[in-house]
Design a protein around this nucleic acid. Structure first.
Lengths: 241, 241
DNA sequence: GTCAGTATATTGTCAGACAAGATACAAGCA
DNA sequence: TGCTTGTATCTTGTCTGACAATATACTGAC
């Protein structure tokens, strides 16, 4: 628990408004404040965190840009209904996984992955360039050398999937899958941390690479589905165990 | 005639930081400032718009929350690379369509729709509740009564599709399609405005409704694909003509 | 020629004040 | 009595001016 808490935020210096924004945002998405609730006044928040009102206001603007809150004079700052939240905002997804997200949410996430990523793989098989294939090939080799349980292996895995997305030549697809991928990465971490490395998906990855290289769209789709289904099963086992 | 033209622009009173944020944001996404460029200093922006520096800063925080910019002391405010932008943010999509977006972007959008919405329709056919079916049925009747070229018809169309999304019982899917839908609505408006009402998709909508009501997932997917392909053809014709 | 220190420009943060807007309550009128 | 109108006041919205922190660029020393 303390490990990533030390690795991600600490060393890099961030402005106060970013920190306050994250603190408030996490409190909201983890349910410590419910939709419809009114947050404490700006001066009160400022005193609680020991900062000025300007910083609080800048933090609140960042939250309202993500659809979390709405401020009105005399009313205060109200937490908007969940369907107004920009749930696919990568930062919001990251905040969601600060605490264990509700199972229903995780299920929705995998459902969405099963819709988007197989289609992306199929597109990549059609549109990939030689250069992108080379990147994928290199990443596959790296994944084989270091196992997925290592930092280097995880990095190679990310590079592999990033290359696939780039090969779709669709910037919206890249954005979407990047958001989802960043969120899923946290579950991956827990997965490989608490259970002992459930299964090394290197063989599936190789099969996916070959399908894309051979331009076999349906096969690429098929293998991707298998990868996601396995990941979902492992994740559920990790969260349950 | 409560058209969106009255609801969207100036008449509604909005805080200054929202307006400034939109002005700067539109200037960025429409390419008036390129990624890598440095925006004018905060004081300079404040003077140009005739407002205080606080307001400028709050506006900039909203832009940075959407991944558009990055501020550093002594450096200034730099426009981030396009792949850092949160393109699926509904506000950002709206800004994109303030000017004619690049054809490649529109193509990416329809490609994504073709991936997501047929899958959503199929899910809805499986999971719909009686209550949601009733809402869809009512919307269909409204669409038949008023034509799609009217404001009432557009509203009924929105309600119909919103009901389908809700029936998927997947909040991420709802979020995603709602963002896309909001963006596409602008193109729809232009489509029905400048060309002479290309084709009334009421029959396809009825077919989609029946497929969902009958629990026929594959058929629902099929009809949805047809709807989107038609919409894409009409849109391209409108943008080309 | 390389390195260290300083100058400087820009954002980051602070404090206090007043304006604007929205609710709620009280007062006035039919 | 019941409705409307006006006022009280609380919260966000906005302004002003100042100082701190920081990253580049230049300047000077070794």
């Amino acid at each position: 628990m303390q490990t990533w808490e030390a690795s991600v935020p600490a060393t890099k210096k961030e402005p106060s408004h970013v920190k306050i924004s994250r603190d408030l945002g996490v409190a909201i998405v983890t349910g410590q404040h419910q939709p419809g609730d009114i947050l404490p006044g700006e001066i009160e928040i400022a005193e609680k965190f020991g900062i000025s009102r300007s910083v609080v206001r800048e933090a609140l603007r960042m939250l309202s840009a993500r659809g979390l809150i709405e401020s009105k004079p005399k009313i205060g700052t109200r937490i908007k209904d969940r369907d107004s939240w920009h749930l696919l905002d990568p930062t919001l997804l990251e905040w969601m996984f600060e605490a264990a997200p509700p199972p229903k949410f995780v299920q929705s996430l995998f459902e969405l992955r099963l819709i988007v990523e197989p289609a992306a793989a199929e597109l990549a098989a059609k549109k990939k360039t030689a250069r992108q294939l080379a990147v994928m090939g290199h990443a596959i080799e790296e994944m084989a050398r270091y196992k997925l349980s290592t930092a280097e292996g995880q990095l190679a895995d990310q590079e592999f999937h990033a290359a696939i997305l780039e090969a779709t030549d669709n910037e919206l697809l890249v954005n979407l899958s990047a958001s989802i991928g960043a969120a899923v990465r946290w579950t991956t971490y827990f997965k490989y941390r608490q259970s002992k490395c459930p299964r090394d998906p290197i063989e599936e990855h190789r099969a996916l690479f070959e399908a894309i290289a051979g331009g076999d769209g349906p096969r690429a789709r098929e293998v991707t589905v298998e990868l996601i289904v396995n990941a979902e099963r492992d994740t559920q086992a990790a969260l349950a165990g």
